[in-house]
Design a protein around this nucleic acid. Structure first.
Lengths: 145, 145
DNA sequence: GTTGAAAAGTGAACTCG
DNA sequence: CGAGTTCACTTTTCAAC
């Protein structure tokens, strides 16, 4: 993963459907050379795939929340991941430092839908309680850099 | 935005570089019809664009944190956004319910880099103090659904 | 990096409810 | 008319050199 790979990744972050010709032109490579680099990045796992960036409000899921999860005793991260994966409203989850065991990023159509999803999260036997913060307005949403 | 549009979006969430032929095959349309729908979704703003999904660890920014921001007095969300946008390590930001005014999602190469970025965030005159939680391990990272 | 065959993208003309 | 289809034509992909 060198400087050119980085610049290729930058191109793809801006436009995931850029043609290999365009990518090559921006980094000073021919289209096949650019494609070979992208293929290599995919094979190595650095590039997981490609996706569409949606306007969250444009299709329903306008209600977001961040939820701190407090567990009973010691729960392995693996167990926690497996149970949280079953709740599609959980967009992101991570174990964190501090008093809470994990922090979840959740999204739902509305408050009612969010509440239902949080009940499903709390169904897990190891979860003691949760503390949630509702998102009022999103200021920044950068895909990743 | 009807049922077919939803299914097209699902295809693109799974593979943002899917060909119009593939998309059409999955939703029962010809390639040009699929393309016209995707073009329409882009024009309407429902689709913002396309991007690459990276393995976060594969290129450097392995250190993540969630930062609660407490402001002095009343700060407009617009002002806050404008100053936070100047810090590239801020991947996401939103105003929230509860004691804090905003919650930031930040990423950096390492703890030292993160500390520098947080200093830049705190440079803003309206920010009183911050409380941060370091991410230990990421359990789930769904692009969005 | 270059080449060339196969595949995908894309606009136009056409058809159906 | 809006939405789909087929058809021609251009551009891109991609494997071989």
């Amino acid at each position: 993963m060198d400087v050119i790979d980085r610049r290729i990744v930058d191109c793809l972050l801006r436009d995931g459907r850029a043609t290999y010709g365009d990518i090559g032109a921006q980094v000073g490579l021919s289209a096949p050379a650019a494609k070979r680099r992208v293929d290599r990045l995919r094979a190595s796992g650095a590039i997981r795939g490609f996706t569409v960036v949606l306007d969250p409000s444009a299709l329903g899921w306008t209600t977001e929340a961040y939820v701190e999860v407090y567990c009973r005793g010691n729960v392995s991260p693996r167990q926690l991941r497996e149970s949280l994966e079953r709740v599609p409203e959980v967009l992101g989850a991570c174990t964190v430092s501090g008093a809470a065991d994990a922090l979840l990023h959740m999204a739902a159509r509305d408050i009612e839908h969010l509440e239902q999803a949080m009940e499903r999260v709390r169904d897990h036997p190891d979860i003691d309680h949760t503390e949630s913060v509702i998102v009022l307005s999103r200021l920044i949403d950068r895909p990743r850099s």
